[in-house]
Nucleic acid binder design. Sequence first.
DNA 1: GCAAGGATATCG
DNA 2: GATATCCTTGCA
Length: 192
Amino acid sequence: MARIVELEAYIGRDDRASHARFGETARNRVMFGSPGLAYVYLVYGMYDCLNVVTEPEGSPAALLVRAVQPLEGVALMRSDRIAQAASRHRARAAERAATEAERIRRLPADRLASGPGLVAAAFGLDTGWTGIDLCDPVAPLRLEPAPTDEARVAILATPRIGIPGAGQPWIALPWRLSLVGHPSVSGPIATR
DNA sequence: GCAAGGATATCG
DNA sequence: GATATCCTTGCA
């Protein structure tokens, strides 16, 4: 179990940064489906990214889960991260995988899932998880409401990360939301 | 500052 | 079929 601390919104066919910008394709099909479904895609050939479909059927939109704070099952998340690192280095030196495993073992729990690729790695997700209903209370991966005492938190809105043409008005929209100052938010401390 | 790495969308 | 690109990460 983990608490979502950072998200990015991708909304509509006109969102030039969204996978839906070219219309419906085999990869992004689920974005046009029912809200609450998972969309997991592979980026840069190495990292899977978890998204939650948000708009009604026919209206493509999703939230990219950029970072979570691990709460329960930290040991499993750590071993999932290490396993993902090992498979990523399978073609390369096993020594590299070993040193990365050691680095992950030393990571504080707060930094185990501080990035979109790291969220999927910590939960052991890949593209095969696309289409799972995250609102199903018995789904193996699901969303749950935050405890009521956490209902009011300070939220920071900044431009979305890693998008080419960051100067354009439609890209500069502050659609990246994160908990102010939270240690599990991605990026250097100054940007949290 | 950049390399790693594979799927994808677009072009020929 | 070839290739430029990509909602990233960690190390030089």
